[in-house]
Amino acid sequence: MKPINILTIAGTDPTGGAGIQADIKTISALKAYSTSVITAIVAQNTYSVQSIFSLDSKLVLSQLNSVLNDVKINSCKIGMVGNSKIIKCISNKLKEVDLPCIVLDTVMYTKNGFSLLSKNSIKTLIKYLFPISSIITPNLLEASILLNCKIAKSEEDMQFQGRELLKLGSKAVLLKGGHLNNTYSPDWLFTEKIEKRFSMKKINTLNTHGTGCCLSSALATIKPNYKNWIDPIKKAKKWLQGAIINSNNLNVGTGRGPINHFYKWW
Rank of each mutant, 00 (worst) to 15 (best):
C76P: 07
F160G: 03
G113K: 12
L61A: 09
I122R: 13
W188Y: 14
V37T: 05
L99R: 09
M1P: 10
A243I: 11
Y109V: 15
E96G: 00
E195T: 07
T124G: 01
G79N: 06
K31H: 13
T124V: 10
F130M: 08
S121F: 07
I78L: 00
N139C: 11
Y109G: 10
K167D: 14
Q159L: 15
V97A: 05
I52R: 03
T39A: 01
C76A: 15
V67C: 08
M80G: 01
S28T: 15
E192Q: 15
C213R: 06
K119W: 11
I87W: 03
I244M: 10
L64Y: 02
A220K: 05
N92C: 00
F114Q: 06
K235S: 12
N246R: 08
L175T: 06
C213V: 12
V252A: 04
Y109A: 14
G17E: 03
Q21W: 03
I52K: 04
V37H: 02
R197D: 01
L165F: 09
P258I: 11
I41S: 02
S36I: 05
P3Q: 14
A243M: 05
K176F: 10
T254A: 06
I87F: 01
S66K: 03
K202F: 08
K111A: 15
E156W: 00
V37Y: 02
V173W: 09
C149E: 13
K88W: 00
A218K: 15
L147H: 09
G177N: 04
K123R: 13
G17L: 06
M200T: 11
T110G: 13
N139A: 10
Y263Q: 04
S91K: 01
T221M: 12
E142P: 14
L7Q: 08
V71A: 12
I132L: 06
Q63S: 05
K58W: 02
S118T: 15
A40Y: 00
K95F: 00
S66E: 07
I102F: 09
Q21P: 06
L68R: 06
L116F: 09
V49M: 07
Y33A: 02
V37D: 02
T110Q: 11
I102M: 11
N248T: 13
